[in-house]
Design a protein around this nucleic acid. Sequence first.
RNA 1: GUGAUCGUAGUUCAGUUGGUAGAGCACCUGAUUGUGAUUCAGGUUGUCGUGGGUUCGAGCCCCAUCGGUCACCCCA
Length: 435
Amino acid sequence: MALNKKPYKGCRDFFPKGMRVRNYLFHHMCDVAEKFGFEAYDGPLLEEVDLYKAKSGEELINDQIYSFTDRGDRNVAIRPEMTPTVARMVANIHKQETKPIRWYSIPNLMRYEKPQRGRVREHWQFNVDIFGAPENLGELEVVSLVIQFLKSFGAKSDMFAILLNDRTLVDAVFNDILNLEAESALKLYKVIDKAKKVSPGKLDIMIREILLTEEQFIIFKEYLALNSIESLTKFATQNNIAQKSESFIQFLTMCQELELSEFIEYDPTIVRGLDYYTGVVFEIFDKHPDNNRAIAGGGAYANLLKIFNEEPLGGIGFGLGDVTLRDFLETHKLLPDLSKASHDVFVVNVEDEHNLYNMTISNQLRELGIKVESHLGKIKFNKIFKLAQSKGHSKILIIEDQGDGIELELKDLTTNKNTKIDINKINQIKDYIKG
RNA sequence: GUGAUCGUAGUUCAGUUGGUAGAGCACCUGAUUGUGAUUCAGGUUGUCGUGGGUUCGAGCCCCAUCGGUCACCCCA
């Protein structure tokens, strides 16, 4: 029986064309991370399921994780996210490490999802985390980094927005103002998440199912309508949670001072699904209607190291997916043309007797640091240009012999120049190629 | 998991009220052309997603199933 040629559902083969795009994205990731002084790390593809059970949240564990029992009866999972791994790694070494710890990685992650636009089962995620940074400064650094990152592709503030909120603030609203039981609070979290997605009438019904008094209802609606530092400050003062919102308001103010205002927005409906977030949370949205999905998301987690029985060490980080990033760049036309490979020169011969000479001269050119594609075997003259073009070569070195010895000719397809090359002076090719 | 939609050569697709499959591109061979994509001649490829059913006859109609895409959910 014939086997399936396609990759497993929701997974991708990276053919050279796709790989060029992936490498392009990865280079930008490494580049910006290193500009901010972050260091690369990586962890294992498999982790014990318990690592995620501790703090990642129900949906991820119950519906999305790829898990199995290994030969030693251990319950293991293919990593669905990177934060627990980095927390585990940091828990091992944080005591002897100077703070803040700035790390990044680009892991391949898997989740059992139903594939559709912007979502697959395996993706590569740019992960950036800081541990042990002073209050708000780590947050600012991470937000600055992601803005720089998107700007490095040419993205402008009309293309994306960073929507921010703070879980401390949400918890204060729930506990101090609304006096909710834990169970009701959990339900209201879900409602917050839906606030922008359902009709206002339906939203009101959902809220009233949880908030029984009219007073609670009005305050909660007031909360959902907040959209600026000013309105938030006023709301916090009026409801006696000024102290608990102080840090977040300060953070928003600092963003303004750093001139990040055009990219950021306070959004009371951002709460995020992962359980470990405790402070600032954010999601980056593409403003283009075709990409109705977050490009990146992240937040601050104060207590993740506790699950390893370690002293709390605050962390903040985000994940940014290669699929959503690519959709973003493509729809905003920010990707360069990567449809062709880039080599310096294409070396061809039109007679079989020069096959070996082609290899000899190609090797000599490589010694000079030139990227050479040597066509293996002779090629018909009238196919040379067509083939070179389809492969994306702009410079061709043609080997021929018209009866009085080998001749070399360098053809530049962009300038339309022909240059005879002395076979004893192939060094000069380097000058023609490298400019 | 729920819903919508699609499934025909390597690829993009066409295939009229059901009458046992076609085009462009790509690819291969040969001839011609000797310096920017020429031209000519010839050639290869399909269990029409799969399995049933209706019919004298199914790519087309019906049922099931699988797969892709999109939306819900959730988020990278």
